[in-house]
Design a protein around this nucleic acid. Structure first.
Length: 386
RNA sequence: GUGGGCGUAGCUCAAUUGGUCAGAGCGUCAGACUGUGGCUCUGAAGGUUUGCGGGAUCGUUCCCCGUCGCCCACC
């Protein structure tokens, strides 16, 4: 499942390999977000060419549309979206709490109204695992309750207890034999048995809650541990501290996933704290909004200074976008609201993030993570907006 | 030629019977977006102070005269 290859000498950063039913993933890794079964604007081919080893999809979204049953009938998510490498499915816990309206959370599960058609649904943690089993993805996330910042301790504690309880129930479902529907062959058992299930540590910004959550999840036992409820509006130093504290509660020999993070500087920081996996909408969402990440910092493509700029986004980048298109052209595309612009900048951003991860892994291998970090951030923050 | 209408930010238009600061949308410029958001939100610049000239008035974008431009109708 997870092989810890190396612990960096000067920091807590580490190098690893995560084995899944659809292949290996080098960690630390970044997982581009493909909420609805597609990393927005990018094809699987684009992702492969950017060296993406794993992508993320969202069970909540796929449940609402087109429906998990549909995907199951069509042979699972990999086949459906034509992606043969690993996929991690987020449960949709975050979405239910941030997107759906009229939600009612009980210990049993969540009642909510679809953000798409307003239809009422009630789903349990067991349902969410079954959905992901039907999707036949590689890494499953249990339903959890994610609280906002700031959050009073008592409500954070309730959410944490519920998350632990739901995690236990989720684990139980993964161990039970898969549901067999009429006409469904049982050969899927093998694939499903290889699915990994992660536990999600909640507890907001309270160390004792985080500690208790981690301990209880460890008792249940998972294939990896995620830190949830982070990047929900808390100050950076507070996040840094709580992440640091929480990581210390987790076993070294298992993968650690920081959910929803983040910006390049956030990821680098977290890698130094010993995190292995990351996902974030930032490269694609920013790409769609016309912000490109470059080794010299962010640039807003549609800004006027690029109107006649013949250079590519980043002279140090060899992605398709940078090798072929000028800033002037990209600016024009955004200005004219042409969809190619969204795609080209998204492609570049994903490439940039994945390349950054690759460089970090290399730096860890050579015990030069601090050097990498310093150099990267120096240039990234130089803000040498030409 | 005659009659009527209109000329206010780059564009389309607002401005209670002439009375604090001439506003909005779009566009432009610049930000924000961290497990959803091709969405959305935020901020700024921009009117020689309202085609130009004159007049009445304590005071007018809003009244009067002239002039220039555009539009409509009629001849």
């Amino acid at each position: 499942m997870f092989k810890l290859i190396k612990q960096e000498k000067n920091t807590k950063a580490r190098l690893g390999k995560l084995l899944t039913a659809h292949g290996e993933i080098d960690t630390p890794c970044f997982m581009p977000v493909g909420t609805q079964g597609t990393v927005k604007t990018l094809s699987p081919q684009d992702l492969k060419e950017s060296s993406a080893q794993i992508i993320l999809a969202n069970a909540y979204h796929l449940f609402l549309r087109p429906g998990v049953e549909v995907i199951k009938k069509l042979g699972g998510l990999h086949k459906f979206i034509s992606w043969d490498s690993p996929i991690l499915t987020d449960s949709g816990g975050y979405q239910i709490f941030s997107l759906a309206f009229l939600r009612k959370v009980t210990d049993d599960g969540v009642e909510f109204q679809s953000h798409i058609d307003g239809l009422k649904h009630f789903i349990t943690p067991e349902d969410v695992i079954r959905m992901q089993k039907d999707l036949a993805t590689d890494i499953l996330m249990p339903l959890d309750e994610c609280v906002h910042y700031p959050s009073a301790k008592d409500s954070a504690e309730v959410a944490m207890q519920r998350t632990v309880d739901w995690a236990r129930r989720s684990k139980k479902v993964t161990k039970s034999p898969p549901r067999l529907r009429s006409g469904q062959a049982s050969h899927q058992v093998t694939g499903e048995s290889k699915q990994l299930l992660f536990g999600i540590v909640q507890g907001a910004t309270y160390e004792d809650l985080r500690k208790e959550c981690a301990e209880r999840l460890l008792e249940i036992g998972f294939d990896g541990y995620a830190l949830g409820g982070v990047s929900v509006g808390e100050p950076k130093n507070l996040r840094y501290n709580i992440v640091n504290f929480t990581v210390a509660q987790l076993p070294v020999e298992q993968p650690r996933y920081l959910m929803g993070v983040g910006l390049p500087e956030d990821i680098i920081e977290a890698v130094g704290q010993g995190l292995d996996m990351f996902d974030c909408v930032v490269p694609t969402r920013y790409g769609r909004n016309g912000t490109a990440f470059t080794s010299s910092g962010k640039i807003t493509v549609r800004n006027a200074p690029y109107i006649e700029d013949s250079r590519g986004l980043d002279s140090n980048c060899n992605c398709y976008t940078c090798k072929n298109f000028s800033r002037a052209y990209l600016r024009h595309l955004f200005n004219a609201e042409e969809i190619l612009g969204l795609r080209l900048v998204s492609l570049h951003n994903v490439h940039f993030f994945l390349e950054m991860m690759r460089k970090m892994r290399e730096a860890i291998r050579q015990d030069r993570f601090l050097e990498f970090k310093k150099k990267f951030l120096n240039k990234y923050n130089s803000n040498s907006k030409p």
